[in-house]
Amino acid sequence: MTPVPPIDTSLGGSAALVTGAASGMGRATAVLLARAGASVAVTDVTLEAAQAVADEIVAEGFAAQAWALDVSDAAAISCVVNQVATTFGGLAVLVNNAGISANLAVDADEYEAQWNRHIAILLSAHQRAIRAALPHLRRAAHPRIVNIASTEGLGATAGFSAYSAAKAGAIGLTRSLAVELGKGGITVNCICPGPIDTGMTASVPDDAKATYAHRRTALRRYGRPEEVAFVTLSLCLPAASYVTGAVIPVDGGLMARNA
């Protein structure tokens, strides 16, 4: 009988870049990647906020550095990705997590502005970061890309068409690049969080959250950032070598429930 080979669940010696890593799912992802052994580039639009997370990781005894990154700025993405790869001696993991809340536009002019902002941050930033990272990922032993989308890319909420379109685009981008990059051993996967307790949902009253979760999710609750981050981590491990093009809801059963 052929023995079962050992499974590599360590990111030791690898470098990872997480966008939008100063809070919520991004922060939890950065911490878990570091605990798995990666040197983590913590990036966010505000350097001070990113630095706080990097300091938190270092205080635990792991490796991290902070960079300011506005993902709506194409030139900044390229610059930061290359700086990270130079600083850490390469780049093996890219997690496109940065996002914004869905906003309801009330008139035509506002809608156009909201459309452009959602597409820039939630979709264009993904492909720009991936393209900037590709030369470095191609040199990595276990290259991994994870895009964070949303269950709004699988279903829809009235009034959020710009947000839903951008998230659906991220899903399509994931699948296309998984096919395109697979021959080089680069895996590209997508996570679709459902209702998660983060800063973006902090303004929703607790009773409204409880009602929504009870009506819509199988688990009858909002998720925690670390519950999403754990799935992200699993896709970034060397052992996740045969998973690509996957779109994984982390939603407490929201998409599975009919009533």
Rank of each mutant, 00 (worst) to 15 (best):
H214G: 08
G159M: 12
A178G: 03
G26K: 09
P3T: 09
H136K: 02
V4A: 04
D55P: 04
Y242Q: 12
L235V: 01
A113C: 04
T87K: 05
M255P: 05
S234Y: 00
A246C: 10
S176W: 07
V45E: 10
A102F: 08
L123P: 05
P195L: 15
G159H: 10
D197M: 14
V80F: 08
D197R: 15
A133E: 00
Q114A: 09
I145V: 14
C79H: 13
P238C: 01
Q83E: 13
P5W: 06
A49N: 13
G182F: 07
R216C: 03
I171M: 12
T174L: 05
A178S: 08
I100T: 15
V31D: 07
A166L: 09
T174P: 05
Y111I: 02
N258M: 15
R216Q: 07
A140P: 06
A125I: 03
A239P: 05
V93R: 00
A240T: 01
I191G: 04
G12V: 13
S78D: 15
V243Y: 03
G184W: 07
N103L: 15
H136N: 08
I77D: 03
A64M: 07
L32A: 15
G61A: 09
A162G: 07
M255N: 04
I119D: 03
V95I: 07
V228A: 01
Q83K: 10
T187V: 01
D8L: 07
G13W: 00
T87I: 05
A74W: 14
V40T: 11
S234T: 03
V40Q: 08
T46Q: 14
S72E: 14
L32K: 13
A85R: 04
L181H: 08
A15R: 03
T19V: 11
T29Q: 06
V18H: 10
D107I: 11
S234Q: 08
T19F: 08
R216G: 00
L237R: 11
A92Q: 05
C192D: 09
T211Q: 15
E180F: 04
A162Q: 07
V231H: 06
